[in-house]
Each structure stands twice: as structure tokens, then as C-alpha cells.
Design a protein around this nucleic acid. Sequence first.
DNA 1: CCAAAGATGCGCT
DNA 2: GCGCATCTTTGGG
Length: 223
Amino acid sequence: MLQTSFFNRDACLVAQQLLGKIIFRQYQGHWLAARIIETEAYYLGDKGSHASLGFTEKRKALFMPAGTIYKYYARGKDSLNVSCRGEGNAVLIKSAYPYAGPGQLTDSDALPAEIKLMQQLNPASSGGVRPLEKLCSGQTLLCQSLNLKVDEWDQQQFDATCFYFAGNEETPEKIIQTTRLGIPAGRDEYLLYRFIDYDYARFCTSNPLTKRNWLERKHYRII
DNA sequence: CCAAAGATGCGCT
DNA sequence: GCGCATCTTTGGG
């Protein structure tokens, strides 16, 4: 389990080092799991952040010690963040990919019970089964798949018995660094605070590599 | 109390 | 890639 000291560092560094880490979530006797593939960093002083709007009870977790979980409603659905070093700074877990041990799972595999549970928790809008690539591809979709609710987790700490992040010290070989999503013009929208695991870019919310008219160095860079 | 905006996601083009 | 449905929070009146 990642300790609070992991989060007690610069938010952009934490965001990058979270890539490749695994989220573990206890549900009905099973450990649901997903690999983090996309993150965003937010700072008190950047106008895209919730913290920059000032302290309210809802935003309190952003001002609590590093490693505190901040959950809020994004367009009415649950979203997962963790506070970092410096009051008001945090990382947003933007998307993940279903995890069931080493190697990349595909829809053609016989899916483990844990993955099927995640598909039950987060069915397609049609009511059908959501393919793996769409199961955790979004900050609220991820929370839905892992049964992570605002009411239960906002302002809480990670808990080794039911919800935590884990993984080795390695970050992916290649990381895509680009702009955050959903930030209006004039709100520091140009900041390159979004990070994507290169090898999983096709599963993230919006893939810089395949975006029309997007160029390396101009709109994103590989680090 | 209500209008407006928001760290979105879906469906269709 | 774009429009819009959805629902919570916020802030002004």
C-alpha cells in the first residue's frame, strides 16, 4: 500500500508516479483492481483548481494533510482525487484500465469474477456489458466500477482493508504530458498538468496521439 | 430560491 | 468532433 509519504511531494511528481500503480478495492469478498493510466495535477494557485475557488466544507479535503482523499461530484457523478504536499494541491485520478494480474487483459480473455463485478457496477448506458477499454475510462466511470462513493470516502484516508493504491517504484517507460481536460479559457488551461501512460494511451479519456491536428512538442510531449 | 456553471459522458455525425 | 442530457454545488437576489 502506498503510504501518505508518497503523496507528500509535488503534485505533478505524484501524478506521474501514480501511473502504473494499481487501485485495490474490496467489494463483496473480492478485490477489484485497476491500473492507473491517466492523472491530472491541480494547485492552489492555478485557476483551474477547485482549491483556487477558496475553502468551503465540500472542498475541505484539498486543504487537509497530503494523502487525504478528496471526492466530489463531477457532473453529478463521483470523482476521485488525493491531496498532495502544499495546502490546496492535489491529483485527480482520470482513468484506469481493469487489472487482473501481470499482463494486459483483453475482452477476448475469460474474464475473472472481479472484472465481471466491475462490469456489473458500471454497466453500459444501454444496460449491456461495458467493454474493458471503456470500463474505467473516465474519472466518474472509474469510481462507478470500483464502487467508490463521495459519502463514504471524501476527507478519509486510504484503508489497507478495503481501499488503497499499491505498486512498485517503477513508472512507465514513456509518459505523455499534455493539457488538462474541461478547463475553460483563462483558467490556466495551457498548463501541461495531465499525464498519460504511453502504452495505455488508447484507453485514456482523450488520446493526444490520435487527436486531429495534434503535434508532438506543440500540443503534447513524451517524457 | 433559482439560475448558472461545472476537473463529464454519450450518442450521433 | 460536437451537442446535449444530467445533477450537484455555488452564489446572487
